[in-house]
Design a protein around this nucleic acid. Structure first.
Lengths: 176, 176
DNA sequence: TTGCGACTATGACAGTCGTCATAATCCGGC
DNA sequence: GCCGGATTATGACGACTGTCATAGTCGCAA
């Protein structure tokens, strides 16, 4: 059972969201996950880089599947997507961010984060396009939706309020 | 002359944009600005926290004044705002981010970043409102514009492309 | 029971971090 | 000239970082 491995990945995601990749140490991660420090390099021979990349991949897949599963109605998908983030923010006192954004701002996992964003964009664009919107426009709208949510998450953290997410959700609802 | 001080602030902004606050050391900053290491705590008795806060404030004011100065036409303001970021991204191989986003993701300057975002929102909302848009709507649109640009910057960095910024600009132009 | 591979415990390494104390140097007013 | 505050040079401190080597423990197969 790779439960130690998974505990480390989950702890990494949690801490990366709160503090970012650079500000999170390996010792923090194993301590948070009550994982043995001695086996870091057994499970992740590539060290912090491998851990950061895999954690970002895992988080990106999770949110991506959430996006895929959310109805065929893109408006509903976006509404639920924003609801998901508002819930996450509120339960963390506005100190949690998006794990993919954390990965994007690191050297180690930047490209993994980029691939995750691209995948989200394609999923959402396909939803929008299926409602009769031209391809180009659907792509632009999908990018706008994801970008504005990511940006709103950063603003929400800085302002310690979910007002940015509320406003963005309001505008996106009218738009899609 | 406070030119050493200013060199340190400018270097801090540059490095924060590239690597984030946590991944930038005091030694990096003085070295980048060719400033004397010995006088760090002469100019910034509060240490890294004071430096990070002041750098974030300075950068926020600069971009804020840029936003204020940009015409009365909000559409043109946003277009130029996005053009500014596209130029910055291109000339840095997509490795530079927004200094306020970096501040927002740090412990030290989070609230300073929040105030900067709020100030930008108010400036932009006032522009939009002056074109006959109801207050609430103007505020939502301003937040959407800033959030989507911030998010697009992160996506652009991750994907090493300015396509996100291009798409967001396209959508915002239609919207405002 | 024995053996072997997977996993963990512990401590150490070289390096870097923020911070600061101390001493040296610079430079404008007398 | 020369004094005094502003500024800089240098080196050190304790803490922390990622990484790894070594030794130990565990559970399953033979």
């Amino acid at each position: 059972m790779a439960s130690t491995r998974e505990a480390m990945l989950d702890s990494a995601i949690t801490l990366f969201r709160q503090r970012g990749v650079a500000a999170t140490s390996m010792r923090d991660i194993v301590e948070h996950g009550q994982a043995p420090r001695g086996s870091i390099y057994h499970h992740f021979p590539g060290g912090k880089e491998e851990l950061a990349r895999e954690a970002t991949q895992r988080a990106g897949d999770f949110i991506g599947s959430l996006l895929t599963g959310l109805a065929n109605d893109p408006a509903e998908a976006i509404e639920k997507f924003i609801g998901f983030w508002r819930g996450a923010l509120a339960s963390a006192d506005f100190l949690d961010g998006c794990p993919i954004a954390s990965g994007a701002l690191s050297d180690e996992a930047r490209d993994v984060a980029g691939a995750a964003f691209t995948s989200w964009e394609e999923t959402l664009a396909a939803h929008i396009e299926s409602k009769g919107v031209p391809v180009d426009r659907a792509e632009s709208l999908a990018t706008l939706a994801i970008a504005s949510v990511e940006g709103a998450l950063i603003m929400a953290r800085a302002q310690r309020s979910d007002e940015p997410l509320r406003r963005v959700g309001q505008e996106l609802a009218q738009l899609i």
